[in-house]
Amino acid sequence: MARGFNIRSIDRRIIFVLIFVAVAIPLIKPMGLPIGVSPPVQSLYDAVDALPPGTIVMLGGDYSPDSMPELQPMTIAFLRHAFKKDLRVVITCLWPASPPLIEAALTPLVEEFGKEYGVDYVNLGYMTGGPVTILGMGNSITGTFPRDYYGTPVGEIPLMDEVSNLSDVALVMEVSAGTPGTREWVQQAVSRFDVRLGSGTTAVGAPNFYPYVSSGQLIGLLGGLKGAAEYETLVGAPADATKGMDAQSIVHALIVFFILFGNVVYFVSKRSAAVADGRSRS
């Protein structure tokens, strides 16, 4: 060990302060670091972009407030893209806390694009059951969701006249933070009903779903804040995710530095200890 200096003696709160500063400064003074678009995000964007106006797509919002920083930007970016392309959107939730979050994303976009509820979009709200609900939608969406989020019978909603089951939906975008979520949609909807499925997930969950992209079971995947920022870039509306990417990059660089620094100090101290041990024996 380099005498008088022990890496373990460094107060961990110094690292917390450095991380805090590394996040705060880029948020206050954005640097505009470039955001490259990865193939899974591009393929999802292309699939949505290729749909003709009027096509019905589905958004599955399955997350809760704790994963909002990562997933809410994805929901907003996808809805913006869909409304911009004049796609009609049917929204379902398998998580009970999701509907208000989806409403928060919808409200400003509906005003911005002048969309009409029940004609251009519908929020069917939450339904318990997880995979069973997905299975039910494969047979009958109206049977599985007899009422929308506001309690209106789906038979009174014009858009739902054209949606019988999942085969009437051109594409499903599943934004999920866990279970039930992307895996259940792949297992129940893709495998059984050949649904075209795209997904946005938290960064923690993303590595589990890349094999589905390679196998073609997912047409694209947005992984964490980076995925959301890439989609925002493609849609041409940089928002919260894009703003956060400068901080993300700086913190990653800082963590890489910490890892390298820790390893260098470890090996140097190990060698110093070995040299000191050799001297004491001689």
Partner: peptide
């Protein structure tokens, strides 16, 4: 790496 990115994203969300 993805886990770190996820946790940092949550911090960014709170800081924002």
């Amino acid at each position: 790496g993805y886990t770190v990115m996820g946790r940092v994203s949550l911090l960014i969300g709170r800081m924002t």
